[in-house]
Design a protein around this nucleic acid. Structure first.
Length: 324
DNA sequence: AGCAACAGGATTAACACATC
DNA sequence: GATGTGTTAATCCTGTTGCT
């Protein structure tokens, strides 16, 4: 534990140049006295750390002192920074370990690349809380060459030409201004603008991609998590989509979820069934999905959906009820 | 310009507590 | 008991500010 902290202390000083004992204590989550002891230990170990007393004082490393984190290339550093830039700090109680690791990764990069890598990392969002599609899908493969082209354009801030196959449409070439990349479980999305309009593209539907030399029109700083949440909310409330409150037999839950567009809430119901808030493409889609589940599901709301299902059932009963 | 008061920060010491 | 850490207090150093 202490050895880790000593390394973190050196890297903090290396990155930030000059820090007071109080600041170091806050960063390392120890008392200032412990920081002073650590400084003393580093000094005894030969690390050229020195103190400047008085106002504007603090601790610093002698210029030219270097630490090495070998075997880490630029792409690896970006990948690690991206992994640590999202909600990673909340995962498994490893917040301080992750923060320490991120300092080491950032510290390992050459001074000239550090800002670029940190800026690049904010263009990636890994496993946000919100998902566009809650249903489970098979892993979506994206050809390495396509992915590489998309990633390069996102990182370099250049326009991107993609051959995109939207659902039920003939694939078309489009030129977009990439903002960032988001992965959700097995799926990847490209957040971009096209002619100033916000767009979200499924990476698995990008058949080919080509980075263009022109710079993309995009803000210098982005909050990818916020943008993603906004687009999810927009998606879930848009078009002719309808959200139904459904009771379902747990044995058929996957069948329901696999046909739905999204599932927003899920709670156990009184008799062992599940109560789900499910979004469908439109009312016909909802009716079809619930029809497949026969008596293993019941739409509680909206009333129009219940009425449609009842009318369909009555029509079927009338058709087959009468003797031939 | 010179001086004193003040503020901010480092330094040192003593002691207590927790863990191994 | 050794080690690591936290708390408290006194002291020293240095830069800033205001006054003469």
């Amino acid at each position: 534990m202490r050895a880790d902290r000593l390394v973190s202390l050196v890297l903090l000083l290396r990155q930030r140049g000059h820090l007071t004992a109080a600041t170091l204590a806050r960063e390392l989550e120890v008392s200032t006295r412990t920081v002073l002891r650590d400084i003393e230990a580093l000094s005894a170990a030969g690390v050229p750390v020195y103190a400047e007393r008085g106002r504007h004082g603090g601790f610093a490393l002698l210029p030219g002192f270097q630490t090495e984190l070998t075997g880490l290339n630029h792409d690896e550093a970006i990948a690690l920074l991206a992994a640590g830039s999202g909600r990673g700090e909340q995962v498994f109680g490893l917040g301080s370990a992750l923060a320490s690791a991120m300092r080491k990764v950032a510290g390992a990069l050459p001074e000239s690349h550090r800002a670029t890598a940190s800026d690049a990392a904010q263009r990636f969002l890994i496993d946000p809380e919100t998902d566009l599609l809650s249903r489970r899908l098979a892993t979506e493969e994206v050809p390495a060459t396509t992915m590489s082209e998309v990633r390069r354009a996102v990182l370099a801030g250049r326009k991107l030409r993609i051959h995109y196959a939207a659902a039920d449409q003939t694939p078309q070439w489009r030129t977009v201004d990439p903002i960032g990349l988001v992965t959700v479980r097995d799926r990847g999305y490209l957040l971009a603008t096209r002619s100033g309009t916000e767009r979200t593209y499924r990476l698995s539907r990008v058949l080919a991609a080509e980075e263009l030399p022109e710079p993309a029109q995009r803000p210098n700083r982005v909050d990818l998590d916020r943008i993603w949440r906004e687009r999810c909310a927009q998606f879930l409330s848009g078009g002719d989509q309808i959200t139904a409150l459904v009771r379902v037999n747990p044995a058929r839950r996957e069948d329901l979820v696999s046909t739905a567009l999204a599932v927003r809430a899920e709670d156990p119901d009184a008799d062992g069934w599940l109560r789900l808030e499910v979004t469908f493409q439109d009312s016909r889609h909802a009716e079809w999905a619930l029809w497949q589940l026969t008596t293993d599901a019941e739409a509680l709301a909206p009333q129009s959906l219940r009425t449609s299902l009842r009318d369909s059932a009555a029509a079927i009963a009338a058709r087959y009820g009468a003797p031939t």
